[in-house]
Amino acid sequence: MSARTKASLRMLTAAAAMQWCVADILEAKASEMETLRDWMLDTVRHSRIKDCNIFVTSSCEFHAQLIDLIHGITKMEAGLAKHVELMLVEEEVLPDNTFGDPGMLGLGGGGDL
Rank of each mutant, 00 (worst) to 15 (best):
D112Q: 14
A81L: 06
H46D: 12
G109V: 03
A30L: 08
L26R: 04
K29G: 01
F55C: 04
H46K: 15
E34G: 05
A14T: 08
T35M: 09
S2D: 02
M33S: 08
L105F: 14
G106Y: 02
S58M: 15
T74M: 07
R10S: 09
T74R: 12
S2V: 01
H63I: 14
G79I: 03
D68L: 10
I73Q: 00
K82A: 14
T74Q: 11
L36R: 11
L9K: 10
E32K: 06
L88I: 12
A16C: 02
A17Q: 05
M11P: 01
A78D: 03
L66V: 10
T74E: 09
A81H: 04
V89Q: 12
V44M: 12
E90C: 04
A14L: 06
Q65E: 15
R45D: 01
T98Q: 10
Q65D: 11
D101C: 08
I25Y: 01
H63M: 15
G79K: 02
K6Q: 15
W39V: 07
G72F: 03
T5L: 05
E92C: 13
I73W: 00
M18P: 00
A78E: 06
W39M: 13
G103W: 02
Q19P: 00
W39S: 05
A3D: 13
D51K: 11
M87A: 04
P102C: 05
R37M: 11
D96I: 06
K29W: 04
C21M: 14
E61P: 00
T35H: 09
M33A: 11
D51T: 07
G108F: 02
V84F: 00
L113Y: 15
I49Q: 03
K50P: 02
H71Q: 11
E77C: 03
L80D: 02
S47R: 14
L41S: 10
A23G: 01
E85S: 13
M76Q: 13
I67A: 09
V56T: 12
L66F: 07
A30T: 06
H63K: 13
R4T: 05
A30E: 06
A16G: 00
D96S: 05
C60H: 13
E32T: 06
E85M: 08
I70N: 05
T5K: 13
P95M: 04
R48H: 10
E32A: 06
I70C: 05
T5C: 06
L12S: 03
A7Q: 05
E27S: 12
W20T: 08
Q65T: 09
D42K: 15
A3I: 13
L9I: 05
A15C: 03
V44A: 15
R10A: 14
K75T: 09
L41N: 15
P102A: 07
S8W: 03
K6E: 11
A28C: 04
L9S: 10
T43I: 11
N53L: 11
H63G: 07
